[in-house]
Design a protein around this nucleic acid. Structure first.
Length: 404
RNA sequence: GGGGGGAUACCAAAGUGGCCAACUGGGGCAGACUGUAAAUCUGUUGGCGUAAGCCUUCGUAGGUUCGAAUCCUACUCCCCCCA
C-alpha cells in the first residue's frame, strides 16, 4: 500500500474536524505508517441502540471513509456489549438496556445503512462483547480503579443530572471505561467521535497509556445541527434527515434548513475539496436560494444518485413552489355513477390518521380538490365516467381520484 | 433502616369532587405570507358521529359518591434528605 505524503493526508483528515488530540502525534503516526507501509488502525464505535442513521451520524462515518480512502484500516466496533449499559454522554436520562435480540437486529440495520457511506469491502467489523463479556469481576474492579469519582462527575452531563436530582445509575460510570477498554484491546491508533465523545475518547487514551501502549489520537467532529437550526440532529428532537429517507423528503428537508447552515452542511456532508468549499462560502452569501438547492441536490445524489436527485428537485418545484399534484401521486379508482363522501375517501386511502383529523384539516382549508378548497365536512362526490380529480390533503399528501 | 416528595396527553407543566377531553409553553399539523417545507402571524392539536351525543384517557388495581385526574385503600415505579 502506498500512502500519500503526510501533509496531504493531514489536509484531508483535518477537514471538518473540531479537534485533534494531538495533531503532532497524528503526524508522527502517519509518518511511521508511511515508512513502514503499515496502515493505521482507525476505530469508530457505534451504538446499536437506535438503528436509524441520519445525516448527523454520517459526519463521523464520512470521516472514517476518508481514512479508508487514504489507505488506513477502518475498524467499526459494534457496541453490542456496551449497549447493555447505554452511553450516558449528553443524556439526561438513564437509557433502558436492550435485549440481545434487539441489539442484533439493530446492528444489522446499522451496517446496511452505514454501508452507504463506508467501503464495506475494506471495513473490519468487530463486536465488543467478544472481549468485554469475557472479563471477570476482578478485571472490572481493576479497570474501574483507574478513574476517580471526582473525574467522572466533573463531566457536565453527569453533574447536571446530579444537580437536577435526576438518577444516575452506577453502571453508567462503566461506559467510558468499557469504551476505553475497546481501544486497549484493539490497540487503536486513532479513535473518531463527535465532540460529545471527548471524555470517552480521552479515557481510551489514558487506559492505553496505563497499559504501556502509545495513546490513541482522538479526532472529534462537530455535532451536526438539525433541520430546526438549533439543536444537534437527533431522532428524539425530530429534526433529522434519515440516510434511508426517500429522495423527495431528503431534498425537501435539506431545503428547510436556515441559510447560515448551508455552508457547514457543505463542509460536513459533501465531498467538496477546500477550493470548492471556499467558492461555496461566497455563493451562499450571494445566492442562498440556489446554493441551498445545490446542497439539497448534492446530498440527495450521494444517497440516491444523480437521477433521483434531479427528480426530487422537480418534485419539489412542482409540489411546493407551484403547488401542483405530483406525477407519482397515488391513484384511486371509483366506479362511475357511485357517490362517496370525501371524508371516507381520505380515510380509506389512509391519508390522515383519523376522521377527526380530516375534519380539522377541512375546516382549516387544508383539503382541496382540483385547487378548490373543500371545507364542507359532508362533501360528497358522484363520479362520472372518465372523470379525474386531484386531491390534496395537507401540504404533502396527494392522490388522483379516477372514475371508471 | 428512618423521614419527605412525586407519577397528568408527544414532551414540559397547571389542575386537588361537578363549569375537565383537561390552563399554559414547546413540538406537531394547517392557513396566510415567502426564494424555501425557513422566519413571522393566525388557527388547530384523543377516538367515533352530518349532528345531538357517545366512548377512551390523568402510574396500576379496587372502593366511596348521583358524579373522581381530584377523596379512601392496596400495589408498582421514581426522586431527595438522614443513616
Amino acid at each position: 500500500m502506498k500512502f500519500l505524503p503526510v501533509d496531504e493526508q493531514l489536509q484531508v483528515i483535518r477537514r471538518g474536524a473540531t479537534e485533534i488530540i494531538s495533531e503532532d502525534e497524528l503526524a508522527d503516526r502517519l509518518n511511521r505508517s508511511r515508512k513502514s507501509g503499515r496502515p493505521l488502525k482507525i476505530k469508530l464505535g457505534c451504538d446499536p441502540t437506535r438503528p436509524d442513521l441520519h445525516l448527523g451520524h454520517s459526519v463521523i462515518l464520512r470521516k472514517l471513509r476518508q481514512f479508508q480512502d487514504l489507505g488506513h484500516q477502518a475498524i467499526l466496533i459494534i457496541g453490542d456489549f456496551t449497549a447493555r449499559i447505554g452511553d450516558p454522554s449528553g443524556q439526561n436520562k438513564t437509557r433502558p438496556p436492550l435485549s440481545a435480540k434487539e441489539i442484533e437486529d439493530n446492528a444489522k440495520t446499522y451496517l446496511d445503512q452505514a454501508g452507504k457511506v463506508l467501503d464495506r469491502e475494506k471495513l473490519e467489523i468487530v463486536y465488543n462483547s467478544d472481549w468485554l463479556a469475557e472479563m471477570k469481576f476482578d478485571d472490572v474492579i481493576r479497570l474501574s480503579s483507574r478513574l476517580t469519582v471526582a473525574r467522572m462527575i466533573e463531566r457536565d452531563d453527569f453533574s447536571r443530572r446530579f444537580e437536577r436530582n435526576e438518577p444516575i445509575s452506577l453502571h453508567e460510570f462503566l461506559y467510558p471505561l468499557a469504551q476505553g477498554q475497546d481501544s486497549v484491546h484493539l490497540e487503536s491508533d486513532v479513535e473518531l467521535g463527535g465532540t460529545d465523545q471527548k471524555f470517552n475518547l480521552l479515557v481510551g487514551r489514558q487506559l492505553q497509556q496505563q497499559d504501556g501502549q502509545s495513546p490513541q489520537v482522538c479526532l472529534m467532529t462537530p455535532l451536526l445541527v438539525g433541520t430546526d437550526g438549533e439543536k444537534k440532529m437527533s431522532k428524539s428532537y425530530d429534526n433529522y434527515i434519515g440516510i434511508n429517507e426517500d429522495p423527495n423528503n431528503m431534498y425537501g428537508k435539506v431545503l428547510r434548513i436556515t441559510d447560515h447552515q448551508i455552508y457547514p452542511w457543505f463542509e460536513l456532508l459533501t465531498d467538496l475539496d477546500s477550493d470548492q468549499l471556499k467558492e461555496m462560502k461566497a455563493k451562499v452569501k450571494a445566492d442562498p436560494r440556489n446554493t441551498k438547492h445545490e446542497l439539497a441536490r448534492t446530498i440527495t445524489a450521494i444517497y440516491h444518485g444523480d437521477e433521483a436527485a434531479e427528480k426530487a428537485r422537480q418534485h419539489f418545484e412542482q409540489t411546493v413552489i407551484r403547488k401542483e399534484v405530483p406525477d407519482d401521486a397515488m391513484e384511486l379508482s371509483y366506479e362511475a355513477g357511485t357517490t362517496h363522501r370525501l371524508l371516507d375517501i381520505i380515510a380509506e386511502a389512509g391519508l390522515t390518521s383519523s376522521n377527526g383529523e380530516t375534519k380539522r384539516l377541512m375546516k382549516q382549508g387544508g383539503v382541496s380538490l382540483d385547487e378548490n378548497k373543500v371545507t364542507d365536512k359532508g362533501y360528497e362526490i358522484t363520479f362520472e365516467a372518465g372523470q379525474k380529480l386531484h386531491l390534496k390533503v395537507g401540504k404533502r399528501k396527494f392522490a388522483v381520484l379516477k372514475a371508471e
